[in-house]
Nucleic acid binder design. Structure first.
Length: 896
RNA sequence: GCAGGAGUAGCUCAGUGGUAGAGCAUCUCGUUUACACCGAGGCGGUCGGGGGUUCAAGUCCCUCCUCCUGCACCA
């Protein structure tokens, strides 16, 4: 045992233990072990990402689960890794290159650019991993994976090939969400709609066959006018029926376009007539298909107007063109009015720019195993916690759209499709392409390139990042075509811990992939964490700068403090507002624990590891039995809370037991046993009890606060030389055998009485005065033994029984569970004050009594309530009555 | 528009039909064999509003209000 400094210093301790755990391979999962398996895969953070509070919450929960599982004797695999995060990473590196070397990716070329990204990844890719380690995450780092590892990439290609061959993947020209900043297609899930203040333009088109007659149209996008190939009205709209089938004049470039009727048009909206731009609007595209309208593209990939016929607009940015187009209409006298209008506009998730609906050639996936995956959650083969998310899941699964899986990026898994050189141009422009095209031998689809590669041209596109992430649970455990021992032992995984914001992106798709490629569910439980918000309820985001840096928090409060504080406030099922004082509480708790252990160490006696015998227990003072029984209860409570994944409850149990039951009550009550002159037997028993409690408690707390518990277990000598707390199996044996039998009512009574007397002292401004004496009229003989402890707890000189004591009139008195207690004030007595005080107390009791009486006088209550409830109420009433009469006697005695 | 949450002390949150809770903040007192990152005590609640079911409602039902989150619409 060594000396401990006065305040706990977490940072160095945490670093030390993490290194030791690593050095001793404590996190390693042994796939040949006989122990039951427990496994999780980490939601892979972006490889160039930086740890934020969401990661902290998420990974703390996983670490708690992993460490708890180890303690319960499982062989634990927590498999870590990172995600290549296609768009995010490529955008980051492109920006970097622009700023430092003033070059674009096209300047460098595909190969060189990719080399630069790999360099960047090597340099920055480790940051978030280091940060997770700082947090104490017990991942098996020897198994760390990256979604672009060669073996992992093979999986991605293999899955593409399989799905293509069975007809689930096809290529086609479709209207997709296009990001003009990243210059790639996006999936529907990557588009976020935001309300926006825009304008609604009202304009008129002249009827071609009737000069001077106009059709009024409203639009938010006049800049797409050049792409209009029709005007549509609702067939039921009588105002416009006379126009259907005729043509109107498009103002620029001048042309005639038909007026058509389509149900999609909302009669109520605007003028009721809708301009149709099939090339730049999803709904218009569909209308265009129905009516066989031509497609005219007038916007380029990077969001500029492409329409040489209209010189004033050609080359302008789409938003500048909007204003300009309105001006031109105005000049032509075709603009009627402009109204303010709030509508929802789709933004790209990553680049945060307005998405442009655009026709382009893309690869799509028809999801496999949809029915099975939907059913799995509905019939609880997979449990979602909180349950409410299963509705979100079902709703999405029932409205599945084909997944656009191709991205016009360079960073990612390239589509494993090759076109025969001689026909490449035609094939790449072909309207559609699917499994049937394979048979003709014009395309090649495979995990490895075709033999005579020079005769083939590979598809340029890469795949959506999530097309690799959805394989994560199994692709990390075995290579393609292998049945590795790891996979056999640890797949399917036990739990998945992730944020509800990626139910569609990731969770749902993993379930489908698990079914399709491994024939079973990838996990049994999904725990969705809360979303952490700032004090104003806003999402944490980089742009708002409202996200505290977890590294700073760990520096200030320790990783353990951060973990504990965060888990304490993270509710299940709703968002949590972040509050740094809660993290401070975590640190304070660590300090409390540390000092309680320091107190034990100051006794300078080695720990006692024996367990009390039944005989020894029966001889222990009530405080000892009380704390030992509560220690047993703690096991039971924790077990239940863990079972329900109620981590905030776990923390509350651990906190209350230690701070309240152990420190405030037990430790204060037994300090007398450690004083000089106390009986040696009593001292030994007390230290022994302390050791039993601390040793077990440190193990109980370990999943939440791994570092400090490991540190203290070692320092206190609770572990064999060289052993680790984290790898030690935790035996749940009861200390007392049967806690119920040992319920220590006497201890509870003493604690309650102490509270009464402290209260009395405080009322008379004597809280700090240790010379106060109390005279007690005990209710039972056993009370005599506990008087010194009572005095200690109250901070009084003594509590004595003095049958000859004659209280002066007006002596303050309290009715405690141990008996009536007087507090002689030697001359400073104020009868009126004491009478008033007692009067107040009586008033309170009367209120409670009245409530109780009312309840019991209600015949319905007595008849219908459960008997035990009635019995409790009766007992309560009796207690109030007794207490009231005693207090009244005391008050009466004051009046001479 | 549809769906799902949330609303409890000044703040952050527990509360699983049966006496409304914790921590922080605030106020008073206090260095005692650990801890001032501490101890003791106090103040502080019409449990969002209204209605209903029940012997009994913060808890169950209906309704309204406010906020959040998805999804849809979004000319």
């Amino acid at each position: 045992m060594s000396e401990l400094p006065k305040a706990y210093e977490p940072v160095s301790v945490e670093e030390k233990w993490y290194q030791r755990w690593i050095d001793h391979k404590c996190f390693h999962a042994d796939e040949t072990s006989d122990r039951p398996a427990y496994s999780m895969v980490i939601p892979p953070p972006n490889v160039t990402g930086i740890l934020h509070l969401g990661h902290v919450l998420n990974n703390t929960i996983q670490d708690i689960l992993a460490r708890r599982a180890r303690q319960k004797g499982h062989e634990v695999l927590w498999l870590p890794g990172t995600d290549h995060a296609g768009i995010a990473t490529q955008a980051k590196v492109e920006r970097h290159l622009r700023q430092t070397e003033e070059v674009t990716r096209r300047d460098l070329g595909r190969d060189e650019f990719l080399k630069r990204i790999w360099d960047w990844k090597d340099e920055h890719g480790g940051i978030i991993i280091k940060q997770l380690k700082r947090l104490g995450c017990s991942c098996d780092w020897e198994r760390e994976r990256f979604t672009m590892d060669p073996e992992y990439s093979k999986w991605v290609s293999q899955v593409f090939v399989d799905l293509f061959k069975e007809g689930h993947i096809y290529r086609g020209k479709r209207m997709v969400n296009w990001c003009p900043s990243s210059l790639t297609a996006l999936s529907d899930e990557e588009v976020i709609s935001k309300p926006q203040n825009s304008k609604l333009y009202f304009m008129k088109y002249e009827l071609a066959d009737s000069p001077g007659e106009f059709l009024e149209i409203s639009t938010t996008r006049p800049e797409t006018l050049m792409g209009d190939t029709a005007v549509a009205v609702n067939p039921k709209d009588e105002r416009f029926s006379k126009y259907v089938g005729r043509t109107v004049k498009r103002p620029f470039p001048e042309g005639e376009i038909p007026v058509i009727a389509d149900d999609h048009v909302d009669i109520e909206f605007g003028t009721g007539a809708l301009k149709i731009t099939p090339a730049h609007d999803k709904a218009d595209f569909e209308i265009g298909q129905r009516h066989h309208l031509p497609l005219i593209e007038v916007i380029t990939a990077d969001g500029k107007i492409d329409c040489p016929e209209v010189e004033a607009l050609h080359g302008l940015d789409r938003f500048a063109a909007r204003k300009k187009a309105a001006e031109i209409l105005e000049e032509k006298g075709l603009l009627l009015k402009i109204e303010d209008y709030e509508n929802n506009v789709g933004y790209s998730e990553r680049a945060d720019v307005v998405v442009e609906p655009r026709i382009s050639m893309q690869w799509f996936l028809k999801y496999p195993s949809v029915e099975e995956a939907t059913a799995a959650v509905e019939n609880s083969e997979i449990t979602f916690r909180p349950q409410k998310w299963s509705k979100t899941y079902s709703h999405w699964m029932e409205n599945l759209q084909d997944w656009c899986i191709s991205r016009q990026l360079w960073w990612g898994h390239q589509i494993p499709v090759w076109y025969r050189q001689s026909k490449a141009q035609d094939l790449q422009a072909a309207e559609s392409l699917d499994a049937q095209d394979l048979e003709r031998g014009d395309i090649y689809v495979g995990v490895t390139p075709p033999e005579d590669e020079s005769e083939w041209v590979r598809d340029d596109d890469v795949m959506d990042t999530w097309f690799s992430s959805w394989l994560w649970p199994f692709a990390t455990m075995a290579n393609v075509g292998e049945e590795s021992e790891t996979l056999k032992k640890f797949y399917p995984t036990s739990d998945l811990v992730t944020g509800p914001d990626i139910i569609f992106f990731w969770v749902a798709r993993m379930i489908m992939a698990g079914y399709r490629f491994k024939g079973e569910l990838p996990f049994k439980n999904v725990f969705f964490t809360s979303i952490i918000r700032d004090g104003k309820g806003r999402k944490m985001s980089k742009s708002l700068g409202n996200s505290p840096d977890p590294l700073d928090l760990m520096e200030k409060y320790g990783a353990d403090g951060l973990r504990f504080g965060l888990m304490r406030i993270a509710p299940i099922g709703s968002d949590v507002k972040f509050d740094e004082t809660q993290i401070e509480e975590g640190r304070n708790f660590a300090n409390k624990l540390y000092n309680a252990c320091r107190f034990r160490q100051m006794q300078e006696e080695p720990p006692n590891h024996k367990i009390f015998t039944a005989v020894e227990i029966s001889a222990l003072p009530p405080y000892h039995i009380d704390i030992l029984s509560k220690l047993d209860e703690l096991d039971v409570k924790l077990e239940k809370s863990y079972k329900d994944y109620r981590f905030n409850e776990v923390v509350a149990h651990l906190y209350d037991f230690f701070w309240g039951d152990y420190c405030d009550h037990f430790l204060e009550a037994v300090k007398g046993d450690l004083k000089e002159g106390a009986s040696p037997q009593r001292r030994r028993d007390t230290l022994h009890t302390i050791d039993i409690v601390l040793k077990r408690y440190l193990a109980q707390l370990h999943p939440l606060m791994p570092h400090i518990t490991e540190e203290l277990s070692e320092k206190m000598g609770y572990l064999p030389e060289g052993a680790f707390l984290m790898t030690r199996e935790f035996r749940k044996d009861s200390i007392l055998g049967n806690a119920e039998a040992f319920r220590a009512e006497h201890a509870e009574a003493v604690y309650a009485a102490a509270s009464n007397l402290r209260n009395l002292k405080a009322e008379y401004q004597l809280a700090a005065n240790k010379n106060v004496r109390f005279v007690i009229r005990p209710v039972a003989g056993w009370v005599m033994n506990e008087l010194p402890t009572l005095a200690l707890l109250v901070g009084a000189k003594e509590v004595v029984v003095d049958s000859s004591y004659e209280a002066e009139q007006g002596t303050p008195a309290s009715l405690t569970s141990l008996g009536e207690v007087l507090m002689p004030l030697d001359g400073l007595i104020d009868i009126e004050a004491e009478s008033k005080r007692l009067g107040k107390e009586i008033e309170k009791i009367e209120k409670e009594l009245a409530k109780s009486e009312q309840k019991l006088s209600n015949p319905h209550f007595v008849d219908r309530a459960k008997p035990e409830i009635v019995a409790v109420e009766k007992e309560r009433l009796a207690q109030w009555q007794e207490k009231l009469s005693q207090l009244q006697n005391m008050k009466n005695a004051l009046q001479v």
